[in-house]
Design a protein around this nucleic acid. Structure first.
Lengths: 335, 335
DNA sequence: TACGTTAATGGGAACGTTCCCATTGTAACA
DNA sequence: TGTTACAATGGGAACGTTCCCATTAACGTA
């Protein structure tokens, strides 16, 4: 089959200049007589012309492509976020390139380089190690998915984990618990994790002493959750309720509790965070602090589109999506 | 900051022609004196030059971008496949565009159009409604993720669901079950689903009569699985073991069995398919037929790269990845 | 010494679009 | 009727790369 028709072929068939054809296809309110436009559209139809976005992008520096950089799409938290991003961007005509950093600094930097070489219009990133300055130097509009870290020169979007943690603890205290355990995720080299500060603040406000032994930090991962829970259960006076920094940790904790011959929620109440699918099908189904994952993606995409369209605003936004407590069967009054 | 340096700026600084610079950066065995190459590399370093892939792609018709079209990244089966695809392609310098069709024909066609406009080098697709002919007409190298359907003009990669089903049924019969229920997913308007034919073949081979009442078809979805199971449990002589066409259906079935006051596996054994994360954390953890999701993605990517590089081969491959039975707690001998 | 051969390099065209600027036609207005 | 204004259109340059072809230098060989 012969080569693809170009704007020039269309122009020839329609009997107009390529400029006019360009005006019709990019359609941005360019002045073209209705009759002429009709001729052009007909020629396009007849030839099966399709715009070459590469050529257009070379000229305009707009590629209608956006990158989404996350740690790992196979981690059950991210697919929904990605879905939100994609739905919001595709409806505006953008293609979404997805890449997984695996928390690796080199990969992440390579992705930034790729976004420059490919002249992506923007990017949405959950940073592993990239700093605010590096992101500025990258020179591409960006939105950061993370509230825990400092990106003063970007819009940041995230879930209000601090508030979410309060929700979980209020729920447990409301049930009558006073001895609250915390399995806190390890922050990735950034500042104090929000769940931990929220936990400490909450206990202070409620006049409950903070006991270090009830507080375990570990990397995110089911096995780490299990071991952390084992550690808590081995205490002479273990907690009667536990809040885990995410659902995967909570599932690990559930395992440990089971293996210790104890029951949830009769012996110990358990609350997770994120609301991934799996915690709705455990036995008991886990009470959890739901994050608005899909909305997170949508919101980030919306902010990004504004930046792409209106150039740099002079001040940046910090958008925290509220969490919501989902009561399931893993939390109950202490016995 | 001024505009980005181009190949011409590099040439000027290095004191050579742009052609020479091009030869250095595209590096494909072009004859350049070591000394000259060094000068060019130094100029590149000094200016911070980065190749504009748009411009290069316009000339060469190679974009180093590949599309992955799947039904829904938020469906727990796909993220791992996507991971496999991305890892295999990124290491070769390709960017991966991800799009969700939601089984919608219009969206899918729009994605194909996008892949043409953007001159993607190739695509990997789990087709919702696109036919072999349409995919041929698309004119872009492609690999199809699906064995159940007919794509004679493409490499197809998929899991051997037929063999996997046999694995599940052998397991159950091996445990002593004779009354085997099947919740079969509804095929999306294509041919006979492989799990159903496998089921029928298997029963014939083992001299077990096929009873229509033990066989339910429904769309994929937890709620459908639950209702299908309710239906099976309402039989005067319900099955003692059940194979569900995927894990989500199996989880729905588990729910229904629970709600009916029965126990798994004491009253009824349950086997799912796919091995998504959630079935490892249910109680009991589900026996399931694992698909090699990550490898599926890798294999598809590998095939695609071969097509991109070697143009069209004259005959196409059909690669079925074997399934593997994962024995967990949901299957046991009948009581 | 003349000549072919090859390695190394450079100049310009081409990829397909959009933008700038010029030109034409037509209507509105004094 | 002449002038101005604007709508509609066209021609060519530009975006940044790669490819084709030409040129030069260096070398071996008859």
């Amino acid at each position: 089959m012969g080569r693809r028709p170009t704007i020039i072929d269309v122009a020839r068939v329609a009997g107009v200049s390529k400029t006019t054809v360009s005006r019709v296809v990019s359609s941005n309110a360019a002045p073209v007589r209705a009759e002429t436009r009709q001729k052009v559209l007909q020629a396009i139809e007849q030839l099966g012309y399709e715009r070459n976005t590469l050529a257009g992008g070379l000229r305009t520096d707009r590629t209608y492509t956006v990158a989404l950089f996350i740690p790992d799409i196979a981690n059950p938290f991210w697919p929904e976020v990605a879905r939100g991003v994609q739905d919001a961007l595709e409806s505006e005509g953008y293609a979404v390139v997805l890449a997984n950093s695996d928390w690796d600094a080199d990969r992440e930097h390579e992705f930034l380089a790729m976004s420059r070489r490919n002249r992506f219009d923007g990017l949405i990133i959950n940073p592993a190690s990239v700093t605010n300055e590096e992101l500025v130097a990258n020179g591409i509009p960006a939105v950061v998915l993370s509230l825990d870290t400092d990106y003063p020169d970007f819009d940041v979007v995230g879930s209000d984990s601090y508030g979410g943690t309060t929700l979980a603890l209020e729920h447990l205290v409301g049930l009558g618990h006073q001895r609250l355990g915390l399995i806190s995720g390890l922050s990735r080299g950034f500042q104090q994790p929000s769940r931990l500060t929220s936990y400490v603040d909450f206990l202070h406000q409620h006049g409950i002493p903070v006991e270090d032994e009830l507080l375990v930090k570990c990397p995110y991962g089911q096995e780490y959750g299990r071991r952390s829970m084992e550690q808590l259960l081995s205490l002479s006076n273990p907690p009667t309720a536990l809040f885990a920094a995410n659902d995967i940790l909570a599932i690990g904790a559930l395992q440990a509790i089971r293996e210790a011959g104890l029951r949830v929620p009769q012996d110990i109440s358990l609350v997770g965070m994120d609301d991934i699918y799996a915690v709705s099908v455990t036995t008991p189904a886990l009470t959890t602090v739901a994050k608005q994952k899909y909305e997170l993606g949508c919101q980030a995409a919306t902010f990004l589109l504004e930046h792409i369209r209106d150039a740099a605003p002079e001040h940046f936004r910090r958008h925290a999506l509220p969490c919501r407590l989902i009561r399931r069967a893993s939390s109950a009054p202490p016995s």
